[in-house]
Every structure is written in structure tokens, then in C-alpha cells.
Nucleic acid binder design. Structure first.
Ligand code: FES
Ligand code: FES
Lengths: 152, 152
DNA sequence: GCTATACCCGACCAAATCGGTCTACTTTCC
DNA sequence: GGAAAGTAGACCGATTTGGTCGGGTATAGC
């Protein structure tokens, strides 16, 4: 299993959109500035999330991205999967044949681990994250800083 | 967090040594053949495991590697850590400052995840793995195949 | 209908990492 | 002394990562 910045950025962006969902569509630039992510790079990730059915986009001025499901229905696991950072720790990708057709010594171990991780991440939805005090705190700090920066 | 073949190979090798621990020191070649891993590559991993205090080596003919602790004291987590595949899913590596000095939106999430994974892997020792029926089964198959191959 | 805003798309890229090889050396047993 | 092992390190090709660039296209608002 590998969890790279791709997955992290994707979750961060989704959470950002979730937190500002009452402001209408959120533009890539807004997210990029608030979260400190390259806008061009972020676009690619959002495209995948859209393809994965987690987001819808609105084009033209005032446009941006919006969630396509209820907060509680979007799990962290689904976000990471949609963006391509698989949650599979086995080498055989579940088929059980990484040692010329046969199961290797440690297959069971990695398979169990994958289940553990996926179970954990499936149990956390955007609704959960939005509700966390720490998250709300960080979010309001980010909002303030953005307003301040734009004032210059 | 990223779990690559480095960590997988390391655990596999340690388990192989554990399974054959009554035969005296195990040579790199033996492990490589049984597990289908490049011997030259495996050497690097065993060197790290030795540096990490999990193995001791015996030089000269008939030499090889042996475990330096009791089976129950060697956890999967410690093996993976020793070989360099960290189990840290955060971007800030625990310091909580990946957004120019401040904590990012998702720090808590990754931190929790890391804990979850580490907890799981810390709870599994070589003793546990050696005791699993599936593991013993695969091991005896590998032993048979090696004897057969060497007979040619 | 212009134009500014924004998403859309695909090519491209530098750096890092991965998995692995190769060579040369040392220690130890027989 | 020679063979069997571990030790050390440079080196390498392929892939992935994280990211840029440039040109699209849709659309709201004047
Ligand atoms: S990881 Fe599945 S068979 Fe080896
Ligand atoms: S991951 Fe720790 S602050 Fe962002």
C-alpha cells in the first residue's frame, strides 16, 4: 500500500469543498490558495474525483466544484480510491499468486493489513471530519488568512 | 505512508529465517531461492536488519543469518521500520507543521491512521506468523521445491 | 457579441525512488 | 591456500511523483 500526497491532497480538497459548501461552487484557485496546493496539479485530482462521481463541476464565471453526494456518504476511503492511490498492501493485488502461481509466505498478513486500513478509512466520512473541532479551527484560520491576503 | 517491496521482502526474509531457525545460520542464497528474491538485493535488506539489531550474522563457510531475539519479541512493525519503510502517513512526519508552520486540515486524520496501522503491525510478532497453519503449509511447499530443484 | 472567468485536456518534465546488478573486499572454515 | 560465506559500495534502468505549460471550451454578464 502506498499513500502519497495525491491521496492526501484529494482528501484535503474534498474537505475544503465540504467546509465551504454553502457558498456555492468552489473554484480551483480558492482551494489551491487556502490549502497551499499547486492549482494546476489540483485540477488533475479534481478531474479524477469528478470522473469518480464524487464531484460535479460548474463552468463559466462563478463556477467551480460541488459535492455530488451527502457528506455522510463520502468516505475517506472512496476519495483515495477515486484518485488512484490504491489501498492494497498485497503484491499480488489480491489474487494470491505472487510466487509463480502460488501464494507467498506473507500474503495473508498483507491481505489482513489492507482490510484493516480500508476498514478504518471507510469508517470516516466527510461529515465526521467537518464535525471535528480541530478541523473547524484550522479552517477558520485558513479563511482569515485568505481574506487578509486578498485585501492587499 | 508507503509500503513497498522493501518492507515486504524484509518481513518475508525474517519469517523464512524464523521458520528454519533450528538449522543454524541461514545463508542469503537459501532465502533468496526459497522466496524468489534477488540475492544481491536481499543482502542490502538483511544488512539493515542487522544494523537494526534484529539479526546477527556468522561469516565464513556454513555461516549466515540468525535471529537476535526471541520470536515473540520481533514484531512486523519493527521489521518494517528497521528497513526504512516508515509507517508514518502524515506529511509533516508528526511535527504538525506542513502548512507553513501550522497544522494542515487533515493532520489529525493521517496521524490517527498511522497509529492504527502501527498498532496493528505491532500486535503481530514472528511467533504469531510462525504459528499460522497457512504459513506452515506454504513453507513446507517451498522447502520441498528447493530440495527438488537442488537435486537436478 | 466581447470578454473575463473558470473548467477541461493532454503533453511534457525534473527529481526521486525502486528494485536490482556488479565489483571488490574481508573473514572464516577445512 | 581455497572455497564459502558476509560486507560495502557504486552504479543503473525503469517507473512514479509531483508539478508545469499551453491551448482548448463553456458560460455569465455587460
Ligand atoms: S502478496 Fe498475495 S501471494 Fe504474495
Ligand atoms: S500532515 Fe501534519 S500538519 Fe499536515
Amino acid at each position: 500500500m502506498r499513500l502519497t500526497t495525491k491521496g492526501r491532497y484529494a482528501v484535503t480538497a474534498m474537505l475544503d469543498i465540504a467546509l465551504h459548501r454553502n457558498r456555492g461552487p468552489i473554484s480551483v484557485m480558492d482551494i489551491a490558495e487556502r490549502q497551499g496546493i499547486s492549482a494546476a496539479y489540483l485540477e488533475q485530482l479534481l478531474a479524477k474525483l469528478k470522473k469518480g462521481g464524487l464531484l460535479v463541476s460548474v463552468r463559466g464565471p462563478g463556477g467551480g466544484y460541488q459535492l455530488d453526494r451527502a457528506l455522510a456518504e463520502i468516505t475517506v476511503s472512496s476519495i483515495i480510491t477515486a484518485v488512484g492511490d490504491g489501498v492494497d498492501a498485497t503484491r499480488c493485488h489480491g489474487t494470491g499468486d505472487c510466487q509463480d502461481g502460488d501464494r507467498c509466505l506473507t500474503h495473508e498478513l498483507w491481505s489482513d493489513l489492507s482490510g484493516e486500513i480500508d476498514g478504518f478509512l471507510s469508517g470516516i466520512s466527510l461529515a465526521d471530519l467537518v464535525g471535528r473541532k480541530e478541523v473547524q479551527h484550522v479552517a477558520s484560520r485558513q479563511d482569515q488568512r485568505l481574506i487578509h491576503a486578498r485585501h492587499l
